[in-house]
């Protein structure tokens, strides 16, 4: 009897293992993403746009199928590079995102050491010729053009102020698109509208951005726009004046700015993220460049229904129609926002 038991026990053990195995393999690991960004997830601008996108992807795929880690406030590129390397070495993540053009050089160095891990970075188009690096960018000039066109129609003083951080990437594209939009409106109406642009050479100096806004106002601007996270200072200046309107970009700034905000160009990076994930499921880890545009839904023009300039619901609807015409024109290629070489 004892002998029989000794024989049965290994058989039972083998059966238990065999029964357990399908259960283990049936529970797929969630798709895991780690992202690093220069500013805070609530900056109302660049970093928030990626955090919101990852949250949106998680909502769409479900928490069981998609999880992400987000490290914010990594202005220091060396610190960010160390974080990226640690993530890659851990092997815990399917995709590592370096959300900031300043991280490019670090990624170019790290990515070849981990060919099995997928990396993505932006805003840029350069994948460094690596098969595991994707690049992404925003066609922010498109929303910039629409914002500019509408701003041209709203200005009473015919002077508009723009506050930019550093003249690179999507900030430059947005500003260039905005200027082109104002110019297009001015040409159509045969007016002269001045757009004063002030790059303050900082992504974080809120006080300097506020003073740049004051400088625009003392030079007769009655419409302001700006890009990057330091613009909260400029929005505050516009808010205090009350009769100065604001056009936002990257994330929605309506909740913060209130009724002075006319409209925002909102980034939806989830469009790019879903494409990258889909390609990864087919075995493509990188080597491609992605772009969010009005056409693919990565850029959304969000009009503030509570904008102080609306006297009735009709005004809101009129602006919606006008914006839709501009979107259709850009998507159809009837409106050339910037000459091809500038984009």
């Amino acid at each position: 009897m004892k002998r029989k038991l000794l024989f049965i026990l290994p058989v039972l053990a083998a059966m238990v293992v065999a029964l357990a195995m399908p259960v283990a393999t049936a529970q797929d690991e969630p798709f895991s993403v780690a992202a690093v960004a220069p500013s805070a997830t609530n900056d109302l601008a660049f970093s928030q746009s990626m955090f919101d996108a990852l949250t949106a992807v998680q909502e769409e795929m479900g928490e069981d199928a998609f999880e992400f880690t987000f490290i914010e406030g990594q202005f220091n590129v060396d610190d960010a590079a160390a974080t990226i390397r640690d993530w890659a070495a851990s092997g815990d993540y399917d995709l590592i995102i370096a959300h900031g053009s300043q991280y490019g050089a670090a990624l170019e160095e790290i990515a070849p050491e981990f060919p099995e891990i997928a990396f993505a970075w932006g805003t840029d188009v350069n994948t460094f010729g690596l098969d595991n690096v994707s690049a992404y960018e925003a066609a922010s000039q498109e929303g910039g053009y629409i914002n500019g066109f509408v701003a041209g129609g709203l200005t009473q003083t015919d002077v508009i102020g723009v506050i930019g951080p550093i003249e690179v990437g999507d900030a430059k594209l947005y500003v260039d698109g905005f200027k082109a939009g104002v110019a297009a409106y001015a040409e159509e109406e045969d007016k002269e509208i001045t757009v004063n642009v002030n790059y303050i050479q900082s992504f974080s100096d809120v006080a300097l951005a506020a003073e740049a806004a004051e400088t625009h106002l003392s030079n007769d601007a009655d419409i302001l726009t700006g890009t990057a996270q330091m613009v909260v200072g400029a929005i505050g200046v516009a808010q205090e004046r009350g009769d100065v309107y604001w056009f936002g970009t990257q994330s929605s700034q309506t909740e913060f700015g209130g009724e002075i905000v006319v409209m925002n160009q909102v980034y939806h990076w989830e469009v790019v993220l879903m494409e990258i994930i889909a390609n990864m499921e087919e075995g493509v880890l990188g080597g491609e460049s992605y772009k969010i545009t009005l056409e693919n839904g990565g850029l959304e023009m969000e009009i503030n229904p509570d904008f102080a300039g609306f006297e009735s619901e009709e005004d809101y609807e009129t602006l919606q129609e006008a914006v839709q015409i501009l979107i259709d024109g850009i998507v159809a290629g009837d409106i050339e926002v910037l000459p091809a070489e500038e984009e």
Binding site: S39, D43, V206, A207, A210, Q229, M230, V232, G236, E240
Partner: peptide, 8 residues
């Protein structure tokens, strides 16, 4: 001057 707070 700003009437707002932001990190750093």
């Amino acid at each position: 001057l700003l009437k707002v707070f932001q990190q750093n």
